[in-house]
Simulated scan of single mutants.
Amino acid sequence: MYAIGVGKNKKEVLIAVENLKKEGILVETVEDSEELIQGLLSRKYEGVIRGTLSSSEVIPKLKEKIGRFYRASILKNPFTGQVFLLTPVGIDEIKDDFSDKLDIIKYSSEFIQAIGLIPKIGLLSAGRLSDVGRSLKIDESIENCEEILKKVKNSNELMNVQIEHRGILIEEYLKDGFNIIVADDGISGNLLFRVFALVFEIEGFGAIILNSEKVKFIDTSRSGDSKRYYNAVKFLKNGF
């Protein structure tokens, strides 16, 4: 059985639950964030979806139990039809730009390998590589990505991943089938997610949790429609 949180906005969640039940997939709705997290960690549920419960309630409780983590949205590439991860998408998830991004690359690569794909990582920075000198912020962003690129390429732990830094050119990464896009920071990642998923309605499956615990939890936007909640449960069941 799976569980999905329900807050003030229930309509889209309940539509998703009914559609899943028609396929024989049992989903329980949970109105309390503590109960949802406890059900996840006790293995009462095979997997958990945040649904429409408030992020400010659920996410801190989850961090208390499993430690710090990052989130990566699972989206369908509009050019290739394959899934890719966009990360980080939590606006406050980057504390140290260098070390946090290395952790994100490690955990997202492990996830991509777990679902049977070869990690192909694109690092996003604040401008084209030729834009160095236009502003301090752009320079720092580009330099940081170049350092991360060198570190990953010299890492024995990440020797099987493909990684490139093409600056701000996200369209190139997607056209070339990169399956992990590492945003410049959590704010730009969140903005990209909202443009992709909520403005242009690119099909998505919610956001997985990236840390060493590998919990089966998918974070979903309260602004999502029933299809996203449906997709999130289906991904938990079939994807990992």
Rank of each mutant, 00 (worst) to 15 (best):
N231Y: 04
L158A: 04
L210D: 08
L198V: 13
L124P: 05
L14T: 11
L20D: 08
L85S: 07
K21H: 11
E12A: 13
E143D: 09
H165G: 11
I15W: 10
G51Q: 07
N211E: 10
S155K: 05
G5A: 15
E93G: 04
A114S: 15
I49Q: 02
L62P: 10
F111L: 15
K120H: 07
I115K: 09
R68I: 04
V17L: 09
K150C: 00
F235G: 01
F111A: 04
G47I: 03
E171G: 11
I170Q: 09
D100E: 05
A232S: 10
A114P: 01
G239T: 05
N154H: 02
I218D: 02
N154Y: 01
S188E: 14
S109C: 05
F69D: 04
I187G: 10
T29N: 03
L85V: 03
A207W: 12
N144M: 10
G204I: 10
R50P: 02
G24D: 01
I209E: 08
L158I: 03
D103E: 14
G206Y: 15
S135T: 12
N238F: 09
I115N: 00
P78G: 07
T220F: 06
N144A: 00
K153R: 14
K227C: 00
V182S: 12
N231H: 09
G127S: 15
G67M: 09
E172K: 13
E203L: 15
S226C: 02
I138A: 03
E147R: 14
V6P: 09
G116W: 08
E46Y: 02
E28T: 07
R194P: 14
L86H: 03
K227E: 11
E157M: 05
S221I: 10
F79W: 08
P78E: 07
K22W: 04
G51I: 05
G133F: 03
G67Q: 03
E57Q: 13
A126C: 00
L136E: 11
V13S: 14
K106Y: 12
K153M: 10
Q82T: 06
V161D: 03
G127I: 13
D92V: 06
G127V: 06
F84K: 03
V195L: 15
L124A: 06
D97I: 12
H165V: 12
V89A: 02
E146S: 10
S73P: 01
L124C: 05
A126P: 01
A232D: 02
V215I: 15
N179W: 11
L236C: 01
V199N: 14
A183E: 11
N19H: 07
K216H: 11
E201H: 15
D176I: 00
V48H: 04
G127K: 07
D139A: 03
P78R: 07
A232I: 01
S188I: 15
R68W: 10
K61P: 09
L20K: 08
A207Y: 12
R68S: 12
G206F: 14
S223K: 08
L26D: 11
R228D: 08
S125G: 12
L53D: 05
L14Y: 10
G122K: 05
K137S: 08
T52M: 05
V83K: 08
K234A: 02
S55G: 11
K137T: 12
A183Q: 15
S109Y: 06
K234I: 08
G90K: 05
N144Y: 00
A114T: 07
